[in-house]
Computed example of a mutant assay.
Amino acid sequence: MVVTDPRACIVVSEVRKTFLLRHTHSLKESFIALIRKKQISSTFNALEGVDVTVREGESVALLGFNGSGKSTLLKLISGVLRPDAGSIRTRGRIAGLIEVGAGFHPDLSGRENIYLNAAILGMGRDEIDERFDDIVAFSEIEKFIDTEVKHYSSGMFLRLAFSVAIHTEVDILLVDEILSVGDEPFQAKCLARIRELHDAGKTLVVVSHDLDMVARLCDRGVVLREGRVVFDGDATEAVEHLRAR
């Protein structure tokens, strides 16, 4: 796919991704399956020739039912996974909120993990020092900031991970379902902050099963079904398309 749009910041071209699914969980099970001539593994085509281009400042929702490939696509864009075929090009600094607590070291405190995660996202020491108090205040876990994160709940992980990401100077923010974790007031605060980033011209790519939230937050929706794009257009129309199935 040839892209000439100078504002394109994410270009996904003919991307394919296949996973190996194992049907046995031990050497003994594999041995028995082989004797009985049963299949011990199979392949699953998560994405099959996907083309998506995202322009600077767009807020795009990746939609689809479980197994459609939307989270796989987001992980490919973030660089967590690599495509088996095709290419993905991005321009600008990316922060990904893809798995709660991903990148956190369990034996480090919340304070130490702020510095670790912020550095991974490209922030310098002085920049982290300058924003540290704001990161902690937004997370609302001041009392636990010097506690090892292995003692954190999933909600506390979320608060800290989200707070670090949104205080980084990013061009592209990737969010996968983690806003469903945590209490309602904090979810509302997160959504308000995401809208602020959107209004400031940042690019957003969101995966969520909360279709009403997606329709309010995003301008555009890309619907995937069985690893293929079946709709790409207005977010409200994308939600209607998915619900009409």
Rank of each mutant, 00 (worst) to 15 (best):
130 E>M: 13
130 E>I: 10
132 F>I: 12
132 F>W: 10
132 F>M: 10
133 D>R: 15
133 D>E: 15
134 D>Q: 15
134 D>F: 13
135 I>R: 00
136 V>N: 10
136 V>Q: 09
138 F>D: 06
138 F>I: 09
138 F>T: 08
139 S>L: 07
140 E>L: 03
140 E>W: 07
141 I>W: 08
143 K>F: 11
143 K>Y: 12
143 K>M: 14
143 K>P: 12
144 F>E: 05
144 F>C: 08
144 F>T: 03
144 F>P: 04
145 I>F: 10
146 D>Q: 04
146 D>H: 11
147 T>P: 03
148 E>V: 09
149 V>K: 03
149 V>Q: 01
151 H>Q: 14
151 H>I: 02
152 Y>R: 07
153 S>W: 04
154 S>I: 06
154 S>H: 08
154 S>L: 07
155 G>A: 09
155 G>N: 07
156 M>I: 01
158 L>Y: 04
158 L>M: 15
158 L>Q: 08
159 R>L: 02
160 L>I: 02
160 L>G: 03
161 A>K: 00
162 F>L: 01
162 F>T: 01
163 S>R: 04
163 S>C: 08
163 S>D: 05
163 S>Q: 05
164 V>G: 05
164 V>D: 00
164 V>K: 04
164 V>Y: 01
165 A>L: 05
165 A>M: 00
166 I>M: 04
166 I>A: 02
166 I>S: 00
167 H>Q: 05
168 T>A: 10
168 T>C: 13
168 T>F: 02
169 E>F: 08
174 L>V: 08
176 D>S: 11
176 D>T: 08
178 I>K: 00
178 I>N: 00
179 L>D: 00
180 S>L: 11
180 S>G: 11
180 S>H: 09
181 V>D: 06
181 V>F: 11
181 V>R: 09
181 V>P: 06
181 V>S: 07
182 G>C: 07
183 D>Y: 14
184 E>D: 12
184 E>G: 12
185 P>E: 11
185 P>Q: 13
186 F>W: 03
187 Q>V: 14
187 Q>E: 14
187 Q>Y: 11
187 Q>T: 13
188 A>Y: 13
188 A>D: 12
191 L>K: 06
191 L>S: 08
191 L>P: 04
192 A>R: 13
193 R>W: 02
194 I>G: 03
197 L>Y: 00
197 L>G: 00
198 H>L: 11
198 H>D: 06
199 D>Y: 07
199 D>M: 11
199 D>E: 15
199 D>Q: 14
200 A>P: 07
201 G>M: 13
202 K>I: 08
203 T>S: 10
203 T>H: 06
204 L>R: 01
204 L>P: 01
205 V>P: 05
206 V>M: 04
206 V>K: 01
210 D>Y: 08
210 D>V: 13
210 D>F: 03
211 L>P: 14
211 L>A: 14
211 L>C: 14
212 D>K: 09
212 D>M: 11
212 D>Y: 09
213 M>L: 15
213 M>H: 06
213 M>Q: 14
214 V>G: 04
214 V>L: 04
214 V>Q: 12
215 A>V: 08
215 A>H: 10
216 R>G: 13
